[in-house]
Write a protein that binds this DNA or RNA. Structure first.
Length: 465
RNA sequence: GGUCCCUUCGUCUAUCGGUUAGGACAUCUGGUUUUCAACCAGGAAAGAGGGGUUCAACUCCCCUAGGGACUACCA
């Protein structure tokens, strides 16, 4: 049977970056094995689930390129089936009706005994004759003796004493299923055989195995991956910069870069650091997943991001750029702008850590004359006297082969004649051409826009002096 | 408190009993440079502690310490 994995977030908020990584691992594993990757929304908690959160999760998944097979499932929609299974358990004596009230249970927990032992329902072995006509929950009749172990694909063999598990609630008093029941029923019905999820679910693998056993169902392969922390080792929070997948999109990271960085966080393939998604799919396996939690490092993310901005195809870059612009609530680049941008992509994609950096560098083609200098950049124009510009302009006008090499030679020679460093001329020229010094090389820009446009921009600047 | 999990440079990690413990990011030094920056060369930097097992341990076992998760009619 093929591999079937799933990502099962609860729609109580945006997609956390840790959840995004969990989704990525499941996706990678399914794709690596030619299997299926399912998405299921765990919305059985009606109080906290919202449609808005569901939409946010879909959007982040799409942005990250984590496509799921088939329709996304709503767990809540399958509540009848969950109840049905609870009743099967009831009929086979693997579960029982518990009439203990919340107050009784709370009182037990508050008692001295409740401090060290879990609640044991008095209804576990009550005969049908004694059952009152009152609200009840259905609890699993968990074994009280023996041990249980699972063979986790990441954590290895993990063992518990059965006595550690309490008789967990399967069906609430209002008839709705709990998470514990719902997941295993859904996973079973949907054929999920590999469950990659956060470390915090490790104990649930034990609890759920009990139910799988009671039902006589095959226990899936579990892989519990460690959590992601902030750079200080604490739970990743806003304080560390960002936690929502969407925020990374808004900061201008390419989805390709996020996949690379996230995959590398807790998983490794030898010394490979920078790779494409195709390579990740080819290499991914559970053996490479680390057992220890890792910390999120924005500096390294930037480095990975820079690599992908430089190496991704033009189409992917442009699409990423448009997506980024959209995330800023700005109008997408027009076809005309795109034509100009594509022509200079090779020189603007270099040395850009994030998408906004690339956009800054593209101002000399995306912006329009006259290019007013940024406040902080105006000083470069002051430093170059009108005289220098006047002397340089005719030289430029006489250039017949408008190439980077020619121009660079001309600038160097001119700088020498003027008795100044190249920077004193090239630097102001950048401001003349783009209004800022955050631009590609002066000569690259001049070649890109051509001789006439270059001269025109010099005129604009000269007119103001 | 109880149960379970984790522990290699600052960070992400390689190592699957025998290595000068490797790489990447960050950092430091020198060089280069028309900017944000990039690039080149070089440096510093790690097996939590203690016991075992073994000819040999980062690697296997135990204990301690530290960190984390769970301990809901949440997921």
């Amino acid at each position: 049977m093929g591999i079937v994995t799933r990502f099962a977030p609860s729609p109580t908020g945006y997609l956390h970056i840790g959840g995004a990584r969990t989704a990525l691992f499941n996706w990678l594993y399914a794709r690596a094995n030619g299997g299926k990757f399912l998405l299921r929304i765990e919305d059985t908690d009606r109080e906290r689930s919202t449609d808005e959160a569901t939409r946010a999760i879909f959007e982040s998944m799409r942005w990250l390129g984590l496509d799921w097979d088939g329709e996304a499932n709503s767990q809540f929609a399958r509540r009848d089936r969950h109840a049905e299974v609870a009743h099967i358990l009831l009929n086979t004596n693997h579960a029982y009706k518990c009439y203990a009230t919340k107050e009784e249970i709370d009182a037990f927990r508050a008692s001295p005994e409740g401090k060290y032992s879990s609640f044991q329902s008095p209804w576990r072995d009550a005969g049908p004759a004694t059952t009152p006509d009152a609200p009840f929950v259905i609890r699993l009749k968990a074994p009280r003796e023996g041990i249980l172990s699972i063979d986790d694909a990441v954590q290895g063999k993990v063992t518990w004493k059965n006595a550690e598990f309490d008789d967990m609630i399967l069906l609430r008093s209002d008839g709705t299923p709990t998470y514990t029941l719902a997941v295993i029923v859904d996973d079973h019905d949907m054929g999920v055989n590999t469950i990659i999820r956060g470390d915090e679910h490790l104990i649930n693998a034990g609890r759920q195995s009990l139910i799988y056993n009671a039902l006589g169902w095959d226990i899936p392969t579990f892989a519990h991956i460690p959590l992601i922390y902030g750079d200080d080792g604490k739970k990743l929070s806003k304080r560390h910069g960002a936690t929502g997948a969407q925020e990374f999109r808004e900061m201008g990271y390419l989805a390709e870069a996020m996949r690379n960085y996230l995959a590398r966080l807790g998983w490794s393939h030898g010394d490979d650091e920078l790779f494409t998604t195709e390579q990740a799919i080819e290499w991914f396996d559970l053996k490479g997943v680390n057992k220890a939690p890792s910390r999120f490092d924005f500096k390294k993310l930037d480095n990975v991001s820079k690599y992908h901005i430089e190496n991704v195809s033009d189409d992917v870059l442009i699409a990423g750029l448009q997506d980024y612009i959209g995330s800023q609530d700005r109008e997408p680049l027009t076809d005309g702008e795109l034509v100009k941008l594509k022509a200079v992509l090779p020189i603007v994609r270099e040395r850009s850590k994030k998408l906004p950096d690339l956009l800054d560098k593209s101002r000399f083609v995306l912006g329009a004359r006259p290019f007013a200098p940024d406040e902080n950049e105006a000083k470069h124009l002051i430093s170059v006297s009108n005289g220098i510009l006047k002397r340089l302009t005719p030289l430029l006008a006489n250039v017949t082969t408008w190439t980077k090499e020619e121009l660079e030679t001309l600038f160097r020679d001119f700088a020498e004649t003027e008795g100044v460093g190249l920077g004193k001329i090239a630097q102001p020229m950048k401001v003349v051409l783009s209004g800022t010094t955050k631009s590609p090389s002066t000569f690259d820009m001049m070649v890109a826009i051509g001789k006439d446009e270059t001269l025109a921009r010099i005129n604009d600047a000269a007119a103001k002096m």
